[in-house]
Design a binder for these strands. Structure first.
Lengths: 311, 311
DNA sequence: TTAATAGTGTCTTTAAGACAATATGTT
DNA sequence: AACATATTGTCTTAAAGACACTATTAA
């Protein structure tokens, strides 16, 4: 920004200005770090594929990175990675710093998707959370094995919505829904977190007013069940609307089937490959390589098309 | 949220927790309040229509509400309405309170669109702005005539984009553009604010990184030229993508031409009425009334269709 | 040969854009 | 009648969805 030219009068005023006049919150940046990883199958051989279906390609599922809190509040609960903002940092810079500290990832795309500032969301006091989401290639990053103070794990994410009540009159309406968020740790079989979030959608003066409440935190810290739900829904809507974020989940070169599987994992529905290929044709470039030895017709390898990503 | 069950150990810990351990910012909510109002034409009769075109319908243009600051910093500069958040308030509640205090509007839709938290954006110190935008029916609200300490005015908004530089290589690219934001006060002929914002769009690792800088504030306080630009672009993209926000600019009943003019004012381009009518057909219901005495074929009056607004 | 995935062609449906044509008031 | 806006119909184009079909490898 251009240098702000202050008058002498203003300079004097500013010197006597006491910023402590107003109450101030702490600010944090929290992150929903998503990836896609192979779905662990129970009946699998040492090669990582089940004996009956040795020719089948591995399934991939959406994952989110959670950290077990080593200290109060919510000690031993699972939470999104994140941390407090510091003087001189923008909320985005805080998020980048935390992401690097916790995953080593440097050049990810961070999407700000919501602000959580409701009173009482943190027992320590007035703390505002700026929430970001990001997609990273899970194969590049291996989570810490964990210690007493620190444990990071990938959890599979499944969300279900169930409408539980509907009142609709002429000028007023209300729809209550229950979201079940199921998070399952991949490396620890017995670790499953199930949270429930109640959504109340009111229709007032031709506007929707949505309020959410964590009914059952399921072992998640703070309001993070709510944040995770918002992140998940926001991610889906971004991908549905055509944002090319999915490519962040892919390595440099990939097959179109792998890319399609990534889309399907995030969107939660299967796509017809003919239509999918038409849709993403502009975003990719063919390479000369192919993948062989997979038990079926070899696939061409593709890479991102820079021209399409930047215009 | 469900009551958080604290252990005795945690309760003891919390009592000794000092929230002042971390630096904290002040937080503000700023609002871009948009409306559409008649374009003042210089050659007009007392009836408000120009003599040559007495049969023509009035033009409408996009407006934004600005407030002249009565105190430091940026005294006498124009700024978005807004104010500091208080303990116990969410950022959204702060925005609603400020909107009501400054316009009397109660049931508007507030869209959060960005967070401004760059270091140095406010000479008073670390202040984070949570920015909202809203559309209101300008005919319902008359701005204060003003005093020394207080003056609120509607400004027309015109934005122009000009690309000034482009470097594109294989893996790296940069596009620099200059946005000119022209704000013209309707009631005070000689009051025109012209701000310039430089946008630098970098292409790194298949991601766009956009940074903006206010090159010329044009009499606007803080980084509000940047906030206004973001609000304007965000509003357009929301309307382009089909959000029915425009209806907030309309009275209870309206003609389809009026509605179309509102769309055109926000989108900055003219629409073909046949296509427009088809597109918004589901959102409106015909009433029995018509508008007569306008110098041409009378138009049917429509109202919002609640079923379409809430599902 | 067969299982499994890779890849192409085309028909249908839907939405958007362009534009011509008709309708109905006031002046 | 002329003007200005209101309203409808239809042709074209582009994108999305459905589905049938062909291709190629390893086992």
């Amino acid at each position: 920004m251009e240098a702000y030219q202050m008058s002498e009068e203003e300079r004097v005023w500013l010197e006597s200005y006491d910023i402590n006049r107003y109450d101030r919150p702490s600010v944090a940046s929290d992150m929903a770090v998503f990836s896609i990883l192979e779905t662990k199958s129970r009946s699998c051989s040492k090669a990582g594929r089940s004996r009956e279906n040795y020719r089948k390609d591995p399934e991939k599922g959406l994952r989110i990175l959670l950290i077990r809190r080593g200290s109060f509040p919510y000690r031993d609960c699972w939470a999104l990675p994140g941390g407090f903002g510091r003087v001189g940092e923008s909320t985005q810079e805080t998020a980048f710093r935390e992401l690097y500290e916790e995953t080593g990832v440097r050049d990810a795309y961070l999407e700000p998707f919501a602000i959580f500032s409701e009173a009482g969301r943190d027992p320590r006091g007035w703390i505002i959370s700026h929430a970001f989401l990001t997609l990273i290639d899970g194969e590049k990053y291996r989570v810490h094995e964990g210690s007493d103070a620190w444990e990071a794990r990938w959890f599979s994410v499944h969300v279900e919505k169930k409408e539980t009540g509907r009142t609709v009159e002429a000028q007023y309406g209300e729809i209550v829904s229950l979201y079940t968020v199921r998070l399952q740790c991949m490396e620890r079989d017995n670790l499953e977190l199930t949270a429930t979030v109640k959504e109340r959608k009111q229709f007032i003066a031709y506007h929707e007013k949505v309020t959410c409440e964590v009914v059952e935190s399921g072992g998640l810290a703070f309001d993070h069940a709510h944040i995770i739900l918002c992140a998940f829904l926001h991610l889906r809507s971004l991908v549905e609307s055509g944002k090319p974020m999915i490519f962040d989940l892919m390595p440099e070169v990939f097959t179109l089937s792998e890319l399609q599987k990534a889309y399907e994992a995030v969107l939660g529905r299967s796509l017809l490959s003919a239509n999918f290929r038409r849709k993403i044709a502009d975003w990719v470039m063919e390479t000369e390589s192919i993948v062989e030895g997979a038990g079926h017709r070899p696939a061409k390898l593709f890479r991102r098309n820079p021209d399409r990503f930047f215009r």
